[in-house]
């Protein structure tokens, strides 16, 4: 910041840089305020809104946030993230129901399983770039779908039902609405903070460099493949955290969680909210889940509405809600 110490008239580009810096500072201040208000709102939410609904939104918001780590910050469109979300759901459900595990350890097992799947899928998928990457992840997740369809422990079309919520660490009864609500909120905040931390770390900056210009990142000496794989595994793990938590909330794991439609939904949530923004995916998830709830009882087919929003977003609204808001504030 030489311009601050110079006594002479500041050069125009320095001024511009300072202005941009100030604006950036303003934005992050606004972000902090939004985060504080959101947390207060979420703490108060179960007293005003049906808790299971908020918890479902939180799980999908975390899922979309994890997905955004790849799409928004690394520039990789994974069209198979349902495999990790749904895979973890099955692992957690099996551990909690059949093995009688305590809920937190069951969720962590699900997340670890999803991370492991992410390692395998990511290892194959990062061999191709761009649009091929999307197709390969989609195909591999379809393979995962068929495996789960046939594996005996998933009970095929029935899924794993009546998963017990259990006692958290053997102490807290999660069948009580407020207990499970704050448990889920805590998991969401931990996962969200993890993604925020990753994005703002030196590692996250390398990911963004890969997104902006992969070849330049390679020529700067970064082992791009390793960074991509690491981001993929992290994203899969946190998506798994979301999937496992969803099972404890809704007490059911089914094929819907691993189907490709689910992969499409998380893309939509991220796109609608604003990819590459930290709050965007959560807002997108809230809107999509609310909309699905709203239309579930009506005669209007939800798939068509999801498709229409997809098309509108791609044609007219590519920055998403938060992206547009940031653009307006920067003006």
């Amino acid at each position: 910041m030489t311009s601050l110490t110079q006594s002479g008239p500041a050069r125009p580009e320095d001024k511009a840089a300072t202005a941009a810096h100030d604006r950036q500072k303003n934005l992050s201040r606004i972000g902090l305020v939004v985060a504080v208000i959101a947390i207060i709102g979420l703490i108060a939410a179960p007293f005003f809104v049906y808790p299971v609904f908020v918890m479902t939104v939180l799980c999908f918001a975390l899922f979309a946030t994890a997905f955004n780590l790849l799409l928004g910050y690394t520039g990789l469109l994974s069209f198979g993230h349902a495999a990790f979300f749904g895979g973890a759901a099955y692992f957690t459900a099996h551990a909690a129901k059949v093995w009688g595990w305590e809920p937190l350890s069951a969720i962590l097992l699900g997340a670890a399983g999803a991370g492991l799947m992410g390692l395998v899928v990511g290892f194959v998928a990062i061999r191709r770039q761009g649009i091929y990457f999307a197709m390969v992840t989609l195909a591999l997740s379809q393979m995962v779908y068929f495996i789960f369809l046939q594996a005996p422990f998933t009970h095929g079309e029935d899924g794993i039902q009546n998963v017990p919520r259990g006692d958290l660490l053997g102490l807290v009864d999660l069948n009580r609405p407020l207990n499970i609500y704050y448990f889920v909120l805590l998991i969401f905040l931990v996962g969200f903070f993890a993604v925020w931390r990753i994005v703002n770390s030196p590692f996250g900056h390398v990911l963004q460099a890969i997104r902006e210009n992969e070849n330049r990142a390679i020529s700067l000496g970064y082992r791009v493949e390793r960074y991509k794989l690491a981001a993929f595994v992290m994203s899969a793990t946190i998506a798994g955290l979301a999937g496992g938590t969803k099972v404890i909330v809704l007490q059911i794991a089914t094929l819907t969680d691993v189907a490709w439609q689910m992969s499409g939904e998380v893309v939509l949530m991220t796109l609608l909210g604003g990819m590459g923004t930290i709050f965007g995916p959560s807002i997108g998830a809230t809107l999509v889940i609310t909309m699905q709830n709203y239309f579930a009882t009506s005669d209007v087919p939800v798939t068509v509405i999801v498709g229409v929003i997809f098309v509108l977003c791609v044609l007219l609204f590519r920055r998403g809600i938060v992206g547009e808001a940031i653009r307006l504030m920067k003006r």
């Binding site: 069209f79 999307a134 939800v302 798939t303 999801v306 229409v308």
Partner: peptide, 13 residues
């Protein structure tokens, strides 16, 4: 890809 995905959802839905 995303546009045609949305299109597929609309048509099939």
């Amino acid at each position: 890809l995303l546009f045609t995905f949305g299109l597929a959802l609309i048509i099939e839905g």
